[in-house]
Design a protein around this nucleic acid. Sequence first.
DNA 1: TCAACACTTCGCTGCAGACCGCAGTGTTCT
DNA 2: AGAACACTGCGGTCTGCAGCGAAGTGTTGA
Lengths: 241, 241
Amino acid sequence: MATPRFDIIGQAISDASRTRMLCELMEGRSFTNKELAGAAGITPQTATAHLRLLQHAGLVIAEKRGRCVYHRLSGPDVAQALEQLAAIAPADSLYRAQRRKAGGLAQVRSCYDHLAGPLAVAMTEALMSRGHLREKNGGFIPHAGPVWAQLGVDLPERAGRAPFARPCMDWTERRLHIAGPMGRQILTRALDAGWLHRPLHGSMRGRGLEVTPSGQRALHDILGIGAQLDQIIVSPKREEA
Amino acid sequence: MATPRFDIIGQAISDASRTRMLCELMEGRSFTNKELAGAAGITPQTATAHLRLLQHAGLVIAEKRGRCVYHRLSGPDVAQALEQLAAIAPADSLYRAQRRKAGGLAQVRSCYDHLAGPLAVAMTEALMSRGHLREKNGGFIPHAGPVWAQLGVDLPERAGRAPFARPCMDWTERRLHIAGPMGRQILTRALDAGWLHRPLHGSMRGRGLEVTPSGQRALHDILGIGAQLDQIIVSPKREEA
DNA sequence: TCAACACTTCGCTGCAGACCGCAGTGTTCT
DNA sequence: AGAACACTGCGGTCTGCAGCGAAGTGTTGA
């Protein structure tokens, strides 16, 4: 008694099916019961039970709209805690490399409300190497300049209590990328400007993002990312049954 | 497949007994099998199984010394991730208030390698209100001054990549306190100077810390913490069966 | 009004694992 | 050498729960 109840949340994320659901939800969008059931490879009635559990643990929120029920993560703090957790290497860190090779996780993807994966890391490091961004005491500090407007970022006049550009550890790269309001603004711009889009057509569900030709140009012009992109965009056509 | 294995770590922390063990270990010290079994209210052979599981998940490390086996958290990142997790309010946030009332968790305690609980929060906020410390972009930035030497803190000449004073969310207070190297140095000073000590004599196991009279003087002289201390030190004599 | 659909509830089976008693191994101290 | 001690391994019981099929409720559209 009288201890923090890790176990409630732990129990909620202790199941592989629920983990798969949470991974879908980490994108930040809402999903229906059926979609999540499909993603986890289980029947809707089993998914219902899982989702009720996740809801009771405070990790997800359900919203009824017509005959559909949309589920989403209950907040950014949940996504952040899960990222943090995923960054801990479980005994054999082989699994990380395997996953990347398998291509099961998109190279370019969104993480709750910001961009993640190798592209996000490359962008962050380009910004730092070009002097637009500096890391200090565990926070990112931007230097005013025209890049930010190009990236759709509206710099605040003075730093508030809430971090504007929060460093976020990517658990495949184990390197930092930008989260927080700045991360959200960059993702918004990238989608609005057509630099990235969600491929809803191809493989079953549209996990991950694609860089469009105009996106490649923009990234090259603004951040000088060219060679890295080639490595990132090698589309993993290999689909294991 | 091909998803981050939350479930491995989740499964590791999904049990109430393991949660209790982890809470002990969050102090940052090493504990034997028997001690942890006692803390969790289970027999040593059951504890063995639990600890092997935690070890396999990469959360704890075992070290054999003589006929004893000492277990400890495998690193600060584990402690940080667990804190992050505990800060998520699980549905009914009543449980947090209850726990504080019950006094099951010490008001003054260490969290892995730094000070936590109401005292740590009060110290942090005193430092900020007195202008010694500033929060910016999710990091703490210290202003040079004599306070730091008094607190045993050796300020680095220039900020490195690793944050010197990392903000850490206290999950009982839901307010920030100081972790990272600075937090470690402050705790070290507090113990070395006899401001705090671990009461090994009293209730079964010495969870938590006690503020000594000299510690009260020091906190008053250096940070002006007086009234807050009275609220913090109301020793919870109530021991429920 | 009826069919199609999304989701939930219920009842059931099967498996994982938490827990302990008992016995065994290795270490320390007398 | 022998006793005390810390821990581990094994077998057993019992609870919890993931999973599905079948049936039920509420919503949408023809």
